[in-house]
């Protein structure tokens, strides 16, 4: 296809992607270099019959003027990145100097907002992915043995948790697990502890979120494994059967090795998707004990007084950095595939 024709064909989609994916990333970066304007303060003298007092007040007019001249705020360089709410270099240095043991140091660092969120995000990613792969594989194996007439219906039932948006999925589970829902209330009766609830401890909340993550992601692993199972070559299976291999041995030594590349694919996609975890935190109202990086950005943008563009931008950039780490293996894989195709 000549360059010119190619250009016209690709133009609309390229334009959409550059304008609304490429540029926002750049814009996010610029925002992260700026910080909100300071409010202009002025001293006001209040005199009443008992004497005069001076108060410091916000000069609304002057503040608005600065705001209008400089809507993005003032230039701050990489200041936002290193402040207390992000990488917090000063606080970490101080903690390092003032603490005597690693445990103490760890406690202080993990209580800083950014590291707290990072810890949750990573824990979520790495706790959800392995069970998803194992469970997805087992469900796929098991559905694969069913009679054909049943398969369609059961596949449909299995993929439901994946189809609904994470917010709705987590709400549906939350309404059951909540202390007033069917599961939560039953657990309270079972353990005879009226105070036992999801919100009782941060550990319980984290576990609930992780269970939700497994519930939501397993269908995807299932679907991919299920499709891959149809491509397992029959000849080695027959040969193994003739040689007397048991069913388990056939799965272990023929089916599983055949599915390795698929499992890696699922793992990478799962890690990448879960790195953005955000909606379940809202669905489970778990903001108090579990914050993720994406949630931090959302919170900055939802700030009631003023949207913190600088802070949101900085967190966004750091999140993208994290995604880049996870994305590298996927890119390498795609690169290789492309090279072999040509």
């Amino acid at each position: 296809m000549p360059h010119r024709t190619f250009f016209w064909f690709i133009l609309p989609t390229a334009l959409a992607m550059i304008l609304f994916i490429g540029l926002p990333i750049v814009s996010s970066f610029f925002q992260s270099l700026h910080i909100e304007n300071e409010q202009v303060l002025m001293e006001v003298e209040n005199c009443d019959p008992f004497g005069c007092t001076t108060n410091v007040r916000v000069d609304v007019e002057a503040t608005e003027k600065i705001e209008a001249e400089n809507p993005l705020g003032r230039f701050n360089g990489f200041g936002t990145y290193t402040d207390r709410n992000h990488l917090a270099f000063d606080e970490i240095e101080e903690a390092w100097d003032n603490t005597s043991s690693i445990g103490e140091f760890k406690d202080i660092v993990l209580n800083l907002p950014f590291y707290k969120a990072l810890l949750f995000t990573l824990t979520f990613c790495f706790a959800v992915t392995p069970p998803v792969i194992v469970l997805g594989f087992i469900v796929a194996l098991s559905v694969n043995t069913l009679a054909k007439s049943l398969k369609g219906l059961i596949v449909f039932g299995t993929i439901l948790p994946m189809i609904v948006t994470p917010l709705i999925g987590s709400l549906v589970l939350f309404w059951m697990i909540d202390s007033q829902g069917i599961i939560g209330a039953s657990i309270q009766i079972l353990f005879d502890d009226p105070n036992l609830s999801l919100k009782a401890s941060s550990n319980l909340t984290w576990i609930t979120l992780i269970i939700y993550g497994i519930w939501h992601n397993t269908p995807f692993a299932f679907v991919v494994f299920y499709a891959a199972l149809q491509t397992v070559p029959q000849d080695p299976l027959e040969a193994a059967y003739i040689d007397g291999a048991t069913r388990f041995e056939r799965v272990r030594f023929i089916v599983i090795p055949h599915l390795y590349p698929v499992a890696t694919f699922i793992m990478l996609i799962c890690l990448m998707d879960n790195f953005r975890v955000f909606e379940p935190i809202i669905g489970f109202s778990a903001e108090g004990v579990a914050q993720s990086l994406s949630w931090m950005i959302y919170q900055d943008l939802r700030n009631e007084n003023k949207m913190l563009f600088g802070s949101a931008g900085a967190t966004s950039m750091l999140t993208i950095l994290g995604i880049a780490f996870l994305l590298t293996p996927v890119l390498i894989r795609t690169w290789k595939e492309f090279k072999t195709e040509r």
């Binding site: 994916i21 925002q31 953005r276 900055d300 943008l301």
Partner: peptide
């Protein structure tokens, strides 16, 4: 790219 990072842009 996480959608929320785009939204912040």
């Amino acid at each position: 790219m996480p959608h929320i990072t785009l939204v912040s842009g």
